[in-house]
Design a protein around this nucleic acid. Sequence first.
DNA 1: ACAAAAGTGTTACAGATACACCCATGT
DNA 2: ACATGGGTGTATCTGTAACACTTTTGT
Lengths: 248, 248
Amino acid sequence: MILKNVSVDCVIFGFQNDKINVLLWQAQPGLLKKFLTNTQEYEESKEIFDKNPALKSDQFWGLIGTHLPTDDDLDDYAKKILKVATGLKDIFLKQFQTFGSKDRVPHMRVLTVAYYALINPEYHNLELSSIAKSVKWFEIDKLPELIFDSKEIIFRALKTLREEVQYHPVGFHLLPEKFTLTQLQTLYEVILDKQLDTRNFRKKIQNMGLLIDTNEKQTNVAHRAAKLYSFDVKIYNQLKEEGLNFRI
Amino acid sequence: MILKNVSVDCVIFGFQNDKINVLLWQAQPGLLKKFLTNTQEYEESKEIFDKNPALKSDQFWGLIGTHLPTDDDLDDYAKKILKVATGLKDIFLKQFQTFGSKDRVPHMRVLTVAYYALINPEYHNLELSSIAKSVKWFEIDKLPELIFDSKEIIFRALKTLREEVQYHPVGFHLLPEKFTLTQLQTLYEVILDKQLDTRNFRKKIQNMGLLIDTNEKQTNVAHRAAKLYSFDVKIYNQLKEEGLNFRI
DNA sequence: ACAAAAGTGTTACAGATACACCCATGT
DNA sequence: ACATGGGTGTATCTGTAACACTTTTGT
């Protein structure tokens, strides 16, 4: 059984071409089978689908998510959605808001518990995704037509990310395991939508003790090769708890 | 109609006797009428009540809340709960998390969308509450036996408040309209659970431009009377948006 | 040699911390 | 006059902001 009044949606952010991207899908009943493996759950969800023209249209994209099965923990199910959609697990995923306006979905009363996730789409190339072919990255400022209040949810997620990033070092999740300081700086510039001073940024980041010098360098770049860093998971977890002042 | 799988609960924080307090109730079917004015909604909710022994016991207290009526906006309904429980409106109320573990409520699948509110119980004496007699303040470290996962929800709310208070000047909501700097400092000391330096605290607060000197003083105190301040709503709103660094 | 991005240091300023005594009021 | 909490200033330290040139690499 699924809960007809509750859906779980994930706003999956990626960082690509120096832009923030969002992973979206055009949900089709067939795809639901990947999430709702129980036949009855699938049938129930399909029925809801059939009732809602927006969900059957080819024109509209939406957030990746489904109704919540009765027997799944909320947080676990969000992880499952992420896993099926991207093939990835153990990545940053956070519940940030539940949307519950009365008329947000036509003809139905649905609350959506929304999560946002951060992944690096170059590093994680979605090969493992069960629905890779039905899913697409969109730059945050070039979103397609979206169903329901997906757009609002995306921008609330972005706002939450922008706040979060100021006090917690979450931004690292959007980078490959080994990254340059310039990449890191660009990431922060894009998220915060402002220019940062290179020297000051480097000083601040390096003083945090979060970076590990991998002793490797970029190769095949037509300029001085940058050092590659990874970040120290132990110190990251510590700082995450303490609520480091990460304002930049 | 109500949504059988969704409840809305409010963690109502007050500041009294230099302690953080929480407003709780022992829900009884009769009280539900104050919230669920539609007869059918009341009956549905009562039925759920009757099924759950914990809700009928005299021993257990719980968070104030009910199932969500089908025709209410989620946020509006949280406001309504607060209004009925305390008689107050236009006070600080924030959705902070949705709890959705599978077995958090016995025999039923219920997600709880949790909000927390900040009020000053001395100033707002609950006279206007429709259910004042059925409601009681508890000090945060002297909580009674609580139903379901209410305790977890309360402590998650407290954690959220502790984080929030570091970056946004929310603490003001817990004080009377006119307050002394010592009261404000004590409030922060209690919320953050650490001692603060008086001189530095005052300097910091006063530099924020958030305080208005009312030119009044305490009366009938057996020591030098403290100045009373109120706070500047306009600047408050501004700072709230900007995400002021309020670390103390 | 040139283009392109990486990398680096100093000075000035603002905010944070540490710390101890006098002041006003009621009993 | 005394008990109680209110109220204040300064010196030091730490972190932030502003700012321009040299280095490395591939073509």
